[in-house]
């Protein structure tokens, strides 16, 4: 569904992604693993075109999306959940969802506010609270819910387990499994290997902006030396 071919991305003069390629098949959850600063978030942003790769291409459903504006990328059915959440803290929970709202899309679930409140019951109680009043876990749920309001075919999920309580991490894992069962394709960046193993079918490891491993999770588990070399314990 998504193909990243040999992209090179820069922040100013810093070369962050080096000739990176990866593949996300339809209906799968692919975990993008790597240490802090390895380039996971930049990969997400390069797919979303929030960072423009200087070379290489990103294809979505066979169409070239490199060079498009981020809103066009979103319109094609790619949802982006940023690492730092970036919810609109002055807006209420419901208003945050309104911002994410997009017309129904063929082949994707058409989400409504009520469906999302079923998925994240904590948010239902807080629908009229402003974003800044939410806890870290609630903010994380809201940022995912907001992206789902766009009825995406494919979601970029940047470190959903970061900085939230273990009980919320478990809930996140269940949500991702449910979304997957409904046909959503996911690229998930993670530092938490246990979380990735709970939800992902395949893994890509990046180190210093280069791909160090790709394969199924079973293959990764069969190579503990790879796992230990590139991931924090």
């Amino acid at each position: 569904m998504l193909e990243v071919n040999h992209i090179n991305s820069f922040y100013g003069k810093a070369h962050v992604l080096r000739d990176l390629s990866l593949d996300v098949p339809r209906g799968k959850v692919v975990a993008l693993l790597g240490r802090n600063g390895a380039g996971k978030s930049t990969t997400m942003k390069s797919i979303m075109q929030l960072v423009r790769p200087q070379s290489g291409s990103v294809m979505f459903q066979g169409q070239q999306i490199t060079g498009l504006l981020p809103h066009k990328v979103a319109k094609m059915g790619i949802g982006y959940v940023p690492e730092d959440r970036r919810i609109f803290t002055d807006l209420t929970v419901s208003e945050n969802l309104v911002v994410g709202q997009q017309p129904p899309r063929e082949g994707a679930v058409t989400w409504t506010e009520d469906m999302l409140f079923d998925l994240f019951p904590n948010l239902a109680e807080r629908r009229n609270n402003r974003g800044k009043a939410l806890s870290g876990g609630e903010q994380q749920m809201l940022t995912i819910a907001r992206t789902l309001m766009g009825n995406p075919l494919f979601v970029l999920l940047d470190e959903p387990s970061e900085g939230v309580a273990p009980v919320i991490v478990e809930q996140m894992a269940r949500v991702i499994q449910q979304l997957k069962s409904e046909g959503l394709t996911v690229l998930l960046s993670e530092q938490n290997l246990h979380f990735a193993q709970a939800v992902a079918d395949m893994a890509v490891i990046i180190e210093s902006g280069e791909r160090a491993f790709h394969g199924t999770l079973a293959e990764l588990n069969a190579q503990p030396e790879v796992r230990d070399a590139f991931l924090a314990a």
Partner: peptide, 9 residues
């Protein structure tokens, strides 16, 4: 920027 990433032109 986030509004753009959510599909708003």
């Amino acid at each position: 920027e986030m509004v753009g990433a959510l599909g708003v032109n």
